[in-house]
Amino acid sequence: MTEQLIMLGLILAKLGLIFIVILTLAAYLVLAERKILARMQLRYGPNRVGPFGMLQPLSDLIKLLTKEDFLPAAADKWLFLIAPGLSALTALLTFAVIPFGPPLEIFGRTLPLVVIDLNIGLLYFLGLSSLAVYGMALGGWASNSKYALLGSIRGLSQLISYELSMGLAVVPVVMMARSFSLTEIVMAQAEIPYALLNPPAFLIFLISIVAESKRIPFDMPEAENELVAGFHTEYSGMRFGLFFVGEYINLIILGSMLTVLFLGGWHGPWLPGVVWFSLKVLAVCFFFIWVRASLPRLRYDQLMHFGWKVLLPLALLNALVTGAILLWIGQ
C-alpha cells in the first residue's frame, strides 16, 4: 500500500513539475524571443521590468488578466469561449509522450522520465498536432469576422499542405528505429542521431514543423499586415493570452519532437540526460526565433506550391530510398 502511495506521489510530483516547467518555459520563451529578436534588429528589447526585464512575463500576465474579456456581439458564444483553451490544451497534452530523460532511479524505484510511454507515441503526436488546428479554426469561425475567418481558412489549408510531408518525414525514423514509441526511438539513437543518418528527412521535418508552429515564414494564419491578427483578431485579455501561450508551448513541443526524433533525445556525452535534452530543445527554439528574425513571410500560394510540389515528393522519395536501403542492409 505505501509502495503504491509513494509511486503515486512521485508520479504526481513529476506531473506537477512538468506542468510548471513547461508553462514557465513558455512564458520566458516569449521574453527570450523578444530579446533575441530585438538584438538581431539592434534594439534592446524589454529591459525595464525587473533586472534585465526578467519580470516582463509577470507584468504581461497581469496585464492580460486585467484586460476586458471582450465578446463580439455576433460571435458564436460557446465555440468562441472554448477555442483558446483547446489550442493551449492540445499543446500541453502532447508533452505526455515526450521522453525528456533516461529513467531515473529514485527511492530504489525506476521512474521513467516521460508521462506515459505509449507504444504509438508518434501517432499520438501527429494526431494531437492535427487537433491543435481546431482551436485556431474554431476560434476564427466563431469570431464571425472576415479577417478571423480568412486566417483560420488559411490555417486549415496550410495544415493539409505540411502535415503530409511531416508525416512522411517521420516514416524513415520509424523504419530505422522499428518502433512508434518515442522512448525506443531515442534509445535507437544512442550512437548516432538520425539527423546525421538521414539528413533529408531531418530537413523536411524541420521545415514542416516551422509551418506547423504557424510562425514566420509560414505565418499566413496570422499575417498581421494582411489580416489584422488572423484567427485571433477578435480575442482579447486572457483568451488571447491562451492562444499566445499555446503557440509557445507548441514551440517547445515541436522542439522536443525534433530533439527526440532526429537529434538523439537525451543522449550526449558528459552531461546528464535531462540537461542534454533541455539544451537541444532550447537550441531548436533559438533556431525558430532566428528564422523569425531572418526570413520574410511566404506568399500563400508559395507555401502550397512548396508543400505539395517540393516537400511531398521529396519526403515520399526519401521514405522509399530509406526503405530500400534498410531492406538491402537487412538481407
Binding site: 538581431m40 534588429q41 539592434l42 534594439r43 532566428w290 528574425a293 526570413l295
Partner: peptide
Amino acid sequence: GTLQPFWVTLRNMFRKPVTVQ
C-alpha cells in the same frame, strides 16, 4: 536568398544596439 539572411541576423546580434535609453 534563404541562407544569407541568417548570417546577417546572427552578425547583427553581437553588435551594440543603437537604442537611446
